[in-house]
């Protein structure tokens, strides 16, 4: 399993390195503009870093769906499926590698964000006032959201777990397309429709299960956990379909 994960990591390495490279470049820009107090540049860098954190995590998930797609639909599929590994292991390696990568990236950007914000406060006191204003603003929108570290961590966790679930769901849709609808009319459209319907269903389900929870942070954590469990179920269904029906 570790060997399979190693190669899954290798397949997605280029995407990750590019992301890391861009992030490093923008971070250096951020530090320089912070030091020289170039306000416009600083704002641009903050916006870019935020976009990178969100977009990067999304890209990693999308990249892994693309890799699965290539692993089933191109000649390189033989490379993977001729090895004596069950589809459970092959897909499992993908789900785990992708999940860990997304969580690691999340933790990385979270740490980087925390560091950058700390530096920002340390550099300029004026920021504090803006921060207070932002917090008040968000509070006025939804008085349950707390902009403290725990709340933020819970929020990030729930977001990442949701994304992992979505990626797993995309795996399922892609496998259905490759294994069950292969060669049929409107194959792509049908599997995309399946993805949308299941997304909606799962959204509704997670909403239901967490409806009764009053504490907002707890609600987020439970929602994240439910999403991870659902990702597990999606994985099992997908692997079963692959095991029985997939021809590469």
């Amino acid at each position: 399993m570790l060997k399979l994960m190693k190669y899954e990591f290798r397949k997605t390495l280029v995407t990750k390195l590019i992301l890391l490279g861009i992030t490093a470049a923008v971070e250096i820009g951020y530090l320089i503009s912070l030091y020289t107090e170039a306000k416009t540049a600083l704002t641009v860098c903050i916006v870019l870093l935020t976009l990178l954190a969100v977009g990067g995590v999304m890209m990693m998930g999308l990249g892994s769906v693309l890799t699965l797609h290539r692993d089933m639909n191109t000649k390189q599929s033989y490379m993977l499926f001729m090895t004596p590994n069950s589809c459970h292991r092959i897909l499992g390696a993908k789900v785990l590698e992708n999940g860990l990568s997304i969580l690691t990236a999340g933790a990385f950007y979270f740490a980087l964000g925390a560091l950058d914000i700390t530096l920002l406060f340390w550099r300029s006191n004026a920021i504090n006032e803006i921060w207070d204003f932002v917090q008040q603003f968000i509070h006025s929108m939804n008085d349950q959201i707390r902009l403290d570290t725990a709340g933020f961590a819970a929020f990030i966790f729930s977001l990442l777990a949701g994304w992992i679930m979505t990626v797993t769901l995309a795996y399922l849709a892609d496998v259905v397309s490759a294994a069950l609808l292969n060669g049929k009319k409107h194959n792509g459209l049908l599997s995309f429709a399946l993805f949308l319907v299941l997304s909606w269903l799962i959204g509704w389900l997670t909403g239901m299960t967490t409806a009764g929870i009053a504490d907002y942070n707890l609600k987020l954590v439970v929602r994240g956990a439910v999403n991870l469990v659902l990702a597990g179920i999606m994985y099992e269904i997908t692997a079963q379909i692959m095991e029985r029906k997939l021809s590469v």
Binding site: Y7, R10, K11, V14, K75, Q76, S77, Y78, M79, M82
Partner: peptide, 11 residues
């Protein structure tokens, strides 16, 4: 099994 088509990863 050896397939006709090349199947190695491009990297």
């Amino acid at each position: 099994y050896m397939s006709t088509e090349p199947y190695f990863y491009s990297w």
